[in-house]
């Protein structure tokens, strides 16, 4: 069974082709890292998975069904910025997802239901390491803590797919390493399928079970508008992370694959 099936998807903006001939089958509980140069459409691809944008041509199926035309609660997201609501405290940011589901009219819970939702939210926040900061506003948090909050906020909806758009790009290396450990742990526990756009190849191989590279096979100035980017590399990461235990992937494996990607011939033609 495939969790996500992308069938010959194209994306155009005003006649300018951004993505073409993108096809992809993704197993459930994969961790897909999307890499590629700036402007190669990998974020556009992620937004299409989110239904924040629709493909010009082609279909994206999720568990055999075509994606709905707008974002839904079964697909969570963490952006690089603006992922959390500045007017709510850490706890309120996470409770919000519960409140939307339980209270259609006011979007707010009271009494016992409120207490239960807050306890569940606090539990998730403790799991991502924010247990001591429940009543701060996002602007009082560091960048890494804000991203942890954004992850917790998405997790309370128990999404089947988690979409990450350069989530750790703005974090310094130490914080990033910590949040990588957390991310792998959450991925294993929740059995979500994760798509992550990143600029960082080592991050891609460290976290991903599969690394997908987007690029423009034809990139001369006169070709840019008429030929889009597509998937140029599709690499399974070795050793497989799942159902492997929670130890870190052997660094040897990562390095070897990094070398391999670097050594691959640049931009082979489409369909080769």
């Amino acid at each position: 069974m495939t969790a996500v099936s992308v069938r010959n998807v194209w994306k155009e903006y005003d006649g300018r082709i951004v993505l073409e001939q993108v096809s992809l089958e993704v197993e459930p509980h994969s961790f897909i890292a999307l890499v590629g140069p700036s402007g190669c459409g990998k974020s556009t691809f992620l937004r299409m998975l989110l239904s924040a944008e629709t493909p010009t041509k082609g279909d994206i199926l999720f568990e055999g069904e075509r994606l709905p035309g707008e974002p839904t609660a079964d697909r969570g997201v963490v952006f690089q910025r603006y992922s959390v609501f500045p007017h709510l405290t850490v706890l309120e940011n996470v409770v919000l997802g519960k409140e939307f589901a339980a209270s259609p009219l006011l979007g707010k819970l009271f009494g016992k239901a409120r207490k239960r939702a807050r306890e569940e939210a606090a539990e998730i926040l403790t799991a991502v390491g924010l247990g001591d900061f429940l009543h701060l506003y996002p602007s009082q948090l560091s960048g890494g803590m804000q991203q942890r909050l954004a992850i917790a906020q998405a997790l309370i909806k128990r999404p089947k797919i988690l979409l990450l758009d350069e989530p750790f790009g703005a974090l310094d290396p130490g914080i990033r390493a910590e949040i990588h450990v957390l991310m792998l742990k959450l991925w294993r526990e929740t059995r979500m399928t994760v798509f992550m756009v990143t600029h960082d190849l080592s991050e891609a191989f460290h976290l991903g079970t599969r690394v997908i590279a987007f690029d423009r096979p034809r990139n001369r100035p006169e070709e840019r508008d008429r030929y889009g980017a597509t998937i140029t590399h599709d690499l399974a990461v070795w050793p497989p992370k799942y159902p492997v235990s929670d130890t870190h992937i052997a660094s040897g494996g990562t390095t070897r694959l990094l070398d391999e990607l670097e050594a691959l011939p640049g931009r082979p033609g489409v369909g080769h």
């Binding site: 989110l50 974002p71 969570g76 997201v77 952006f79 959390v84 609501f85 997802g97 939307f100």
Partner: peptide, 13 residues
């Protein structure tokens, strides 16, 4: 930010 609107929708709002 558009992101906030999308985020709210992914939370089921």
């Amino acid at each position: 930010p558009r992101e906030l609107m999308v985020k709210a929708q992914t939370l089921g709002a």
